[in-house]
Design a protein around this nucleic acid. Structure first.
Lengths: 337, 337
DNA sequence: TTGTAAGCGTTATCAT
DNA sequence: ATGATAACGCTTACAA
């Protein structure tokens, strides 16, 4: 393994001091013209790559941002990551993903990294902060899952408006008996989607019979179970809005298993527009979130806070309804339950 | 932000030298008993966390491993990552995922990190190495996608045997007209699955009519197109083995779109057992790869090579057939094409 | 504008 | 067994 080239090597090759070389590379403004381009040319020629460890040891800045997520195995976060990384890259920051797996001690670990200077900032997508955290909130931006009263900047999507879009679309097709399968109890995101659904139904003057609000946990199986319950009702719904796509897959599965035809016998709308939503049969009508935008916005906010000291801001990102093949007019339209 | 605790702080609090404290922490064997536990207790009490940047600057070891993949957005790699990380964690190594997006220059970047000492080793899953790489091959382990003649250690799954399992299963159900949708041309993995399929068919004495070997690119759409072609044949197959699950979804989609019932009119087997294979309708029969094992094995191999200088080894990991609901006996069994 | 030299936190060498 | 000290590669007062 050829030894990595250092500033010292360039300096010697050019008969300059390491200080000048360092300046020519990291603060080109502070060095005279002929020297500057000379150094930069030589550095490129020798294939010089700064030693980030040494640099951050000296500057006391790690130039890295932690993105803490619940489950690194969820492709959704990867899209957010891509957006965040693109924004960070331009500012020479590195993004590393931290996996908390809903484990408070792992979460605390990442906050420690922040405090110890192993990371300069954090994009928090876990929906919770360690007890007693009272660091400089400017180094944290909360995304996706809101945290109330923390004084953090936040980037979230408009969950209530998204639910409303789903209901509006269904109602426009003539549906009046619409049910909802909610996400995990106690999560703000699920609560907002549910509340948005309830509000939208009320706005259309539609009633919500008992059992039309099913609990779920964002997993396929819970979508299946909820559907079983829904279809066993005396007057089952003609349409179901699931709080995420995986539960919507459960709906498709169970309905087809019971011999119903989608969308003729039952309309379905999901939420998230995950990769496979267009691959299932029939292709799922769903609501898409601007995943990369979430990451990009959060990173831009964080970077700007890291510079000056902006006041905490809140960004609400819009969603889009993707019409595919799981929504049709109901068979017996207009029948109020 | 409270300043991070350094070795110096512990040393002062205890009236010892920084050297002793350092030793008590990183090489406890080299320090006498009363001192050792004293230091360790104090370090814990003061919540000391070593500065990894300083440490690796001094030791010239980064204690980090790059895992280079084609597409960081693919959940498959995340499972491999989890396995690798678990193994690395025990040895105090950090794993970071490098995204090449099939871009040779990004790939070369990660090899540079290796050469410059920004990483101590690499698990390579992209199936290619930069031209002219001739570093110490002991710091690289190839996983998943083989590289011929590189002198690298490899961890791969037995793709040919997997294809054979699929064919055996189908034949046991009475199928004789079996088609295959292959992965991208020129990729070793696809080639092996295809070769395994062809060999298994021959072993059962089954012929392969023209058109029964369809090209694909691992995407849903290519599975759809191949199915269209297959079903338009004079004697269409009674079963299809797709080289991955996404293409199998395309098969399900297109077949159902044409009014066929799965598995009664057509049997389907996929490969990979991705998360949603059990969520589609009908649940997909497929072949599962030991994802986490691949990562764990590769990391263990790498770590042991980083220590001594083992000769390059090869590990072949077995796969498992997961029976779900897309395979049944053919309607008109026994009809040779 | 450029050079000299100190220092970031840690470990390794050499004394004691 | 422990301590003093240099060194890792880089940036930044301060001096020239």
């Amino acid at each position: 393994m050829a030894r990595a080239v250092r500033i010292k090597d360039i300096a010697e090759a050019l008969g300059l001091s390491t200080a000048t070389v360092s300046r020519a590379i990291s603060t080109p403004g502070r060095v005279a013209e002929p020297t500057r381009s000379l150094v930069q040319a030589k550095a490129a020629e020798m294939n010089y790559r700064p030693n980030v460890q040494a640099r951050s040891l000296r500057t006391q800045k790690s130039m890295s941002i932690i993105m803490a997520v619940r489950d690194i195995g969820n492709p959704f976060y990867l899209e957010v990551f891509k957006g965040a990384e693109a924004a960070a890259h331009d500012a020479n920051y590195t993004v590393l993903m931290g996996n908390t797996e809903n484990n408070p001690s792992r979460e605390a670990e990442y906050f420690e990294m922040l405090r110890d200077g192993n990371a300069d900032g954090m994009i928090l997508m876990t929906g919770s902060i360690p007890d007693g955290w009272k660091g400089p909130n400017g180094s944290v931006v909360v995304a996706l899952e809101m945290i109330e009263d923390g004084g953090f900047s936040q980037v979230v999507i408009d969950n209530a408006a998204a639910a409303q879009k789903a209901v509006d679309h269904l109602v426009a097709q003539g549906h009046r008996r619409i049910a909802h399968i909610a996400g995990p109890e106690g999560e703000g995101m699920s609560a907002r989607r549910k509340a948005g659904f309830v509000a939208a139904m009320a706005a259309h003057g539609l009633t919500l019979p008992p059992g039309y609000l099913q609990p779920g946990d964002f997993g396929v199986d819970s979508g299946r179970e909820a559907t079983r319950a829904l279809l066993a009702l005396d007057t089952p719904p003609t349409a179901i809005f699931a709080a995420n796509d995986e539960m919507a897959f459960g709906v498709l599965h169970e309905a087809q298993h019971q011999g119903l035809r989608i969308p003729d016998d039952l309309s379905v709308i999901g939420m998230d527009d995950i990769h496979l939503s267009r691959a299932v049969f029939p292709p799922l009508t769903t609501i898409s979130q601007p995943r990369q935008d979430i990451g990009r916005h959060a990173m831009e906010m964080l970077l700007s806070q890291l510079g000056g000291t902006d006041d905490p801001q809140e960004t609400l990102l819009p969603t889009t309804l993707i019409e595919r093949a799981t929504v049709a007019r109901p068979r017996n339209e207009g029948t109020q339950p």
